[in-house]
Computed example of a mutant assay.
Amino acid sequence: MTILIVEDNATNALILKRLAGKVTDEDIIIEADGARALSLCHNTFFSMLIVDYMVPGMTGLQFVKAIRMLRRYDEVPVIMITADQDPKLRETAVAMGVTGFLTKPVDAVTFRDLLAAHVGYAPATLAAHR
C-alpha cells in the first residue's frame, strides 16, 4: 500500500515523510500540487492521504471533496494539516470527510500517534485494493 502526502513546502513534506516512515513501511509519495495529487489518485490507489490545507492547484478542502466523490476513497483515512487556527475550518474539514486534523507546527508524537491509529486500517473497500 502507499501513502500520499500533498504538501507544497519541500521541508515540511520531507519532515512528514520521515515521521510517517517511523510508523509504517508503506511507500510514501509526495506531491506539491493539489490538482496533480488528485490526478494521481485517479490512477493509483493510496491507503492514506495526508493533505495540507493550502497547496497550489486547489485547497485541501477542495481536494478532500473531490477525493470523497471517488467511491474507492470512501473510507480511506485523510489527515489534514494546516497552520490555520480557525475552529470552523476543522468543523468543515471533518464534515467533508477528513478523519484526522493537525495544526502546524506539527507535533511529531501527535502525528505519529494519529498515523499509527490509521495504518493497517482495512475496511472491505481497502482490502479489495490490496
Rank of each mutant, 00 (worst) to 15 (best):
residue 124 A to L: 12
residue 78 V to M: 07
residue 59 T to I: 08
residue 28 I to W: 14
residue 67 I to E: 00
residue 68 R to Y: 07
residue 73 Y to E: 13
residue 12 N to C: 05
residue 62 Q to K: 11
residue 41 C to M: 12
residue 104 K to A: 11
residue 26 E to G: 03
residue 61 L to I: 13
residue 78 V to Y: 01
residue 99 T to C: 05
residue 10 A to G: 02
residue 75 E to N: 13
residue 22 K to Q: 14
residue 53 Y to R: 04
residue 6 V to R: 00
residue 120 G to V: 08
residue 28 I to Q: 09
residue 65 K to T: 13
residue 37 A to S: 01
residue 93 A to L: 01
residue 44 T to E: 09
residue 102 L to A: 13
residue 21 G to V: 09
residue 43 N to V: 02
residue 80 M to L: 15
residue 54 M to S: 11
residue 25 D to V: 13
residue 60 G to T: 03
residue 76 V to P: 06
residue 44 T to M: 02
residue 54 M to A: 11
residue 80 M to Q: 06
residue 118 H to Y: 14
residue 23 V to W: 09
residue 56 P to R: 02
residue 77 P to I: 02
residue 77 P to C: 08
residue 39 S to N: 10
residue 79 I to M: 15
residue 11 T to G: 06
residue 81 I to H: 06
residue 4 L to I: 02
residue 42 H to N: 10
residue 36 R to P: 00
residue 12 N to W: 07
residue 7 E to D: 05
residue 17 K to L: 01
residue 72 R to E: 12
residue 17 K to V: 01
residue 99 T to A: 10
residue 32 A to D: 12
residue 100 G to F: 10
residue 128 A to V: 08
residue 66 A to F: 04
residue 16 L to P: 07
residue 110 T to Y: 09
residue 40 L to H: 06
residue 22 K to F: 11
residue 98 V to A: 08
residue 21 G to I: 09
residue 3 I to H: 09
residue 63 F to D: 02
residue 3 I to Q: 08
residue 91 E to F: 10
residue 114 L to S: 09
residue 43 N to C: 07
residue 89 L to W: 05
residue 3 I to E: 06
residue 40 L to D: 00
residue 67 I to L: 12
residue 127 A to N: 03
residue 12 N to L: 09
residue 68 R to K: 13
residue 61 L to F: 01
residue 19 L to R: 10
residue 33 D to T: 00
residue 46 F to Y: 12
residue 81 I to R: 05
residue 82 T to K: 11
residue 29 I to G: 04
residue 34 G to K: 04
residue 45 F to D: 03
residue 69 M to I: 10
residue 130 R to F: 14
residue 77 P to D: 01
residue 17 K to M: 04
residue 2 T to Q: 14
residue 124 A to N: 08
residue 61 L to P: 04
residue 117 A to V: 05
residue 19 L to Y: 11
residue 62 Q to V: 00
residue 116 A to W: 10
residue 107 D to H: 13
residue 101 F to W: 10
residue 109 V to Q: 15
residue 38 L to K: 00
residue 66 A to L: 03
residue 52 D to C: 05
residue 125 T to F: 06
residue 66 A to P: 02
residue 72 R to F: 09
residue 30 I to V: 11
residue 10 A to R: 13
residue 41 C to K: 06
residue 38 L to E: 03
residue 117 A to D: 04
residue 78 V to H: 02
residue 76 V to R: 00
residue 27 D to I: 00
residue 78 V to N: 00
residue 112 R to M: 15
residue 124 A to R: 08
residue 62 Q to E: 15
residue 119 V to K: 12
residue 47 S to H: 11
residue 93 A to F: 00
residue 2 T to E: 13
residue 3 I to G: 02
residue 55 V to G: 01
residue 129 H to C: 07
residue 112 R to Q: 15
residue 59 T to C: 01
residue 41 C to V: 01
residue 27 D to P: 07
residue 16 L to N: 06
residue 35 A to G: 00
residue 107 D to M: 05
residue 66 A to D: 05
residue 51 V to R: 01
residue 57 G to I: 05
residue 106 V to W: 07
residue 86 D to Y: 07
residue 99 T to N: 12
residue 7 E to Q: 11
residue 130 R to Q: 12
residue 22 K to A: 14
residue 50 I to D: 05
residue 17 K to R: 14
residue 110 T to I: 15
residue 60 G to N: 03
residue 78 V to T: 09
residue 121 Y to K: 06
residue 108 A to S: 15
residue 112 R to P: 01
residue 107 D to Y: 07
residue 43 N to K: 13
residue 27 D to V: 06
residue 48 M to I: 08
residue 81 I to M: 07
residue 104 K to S: 09
residue 119 V to G: 07
residue 42 H to E: 15
residue 22 K to N: 13
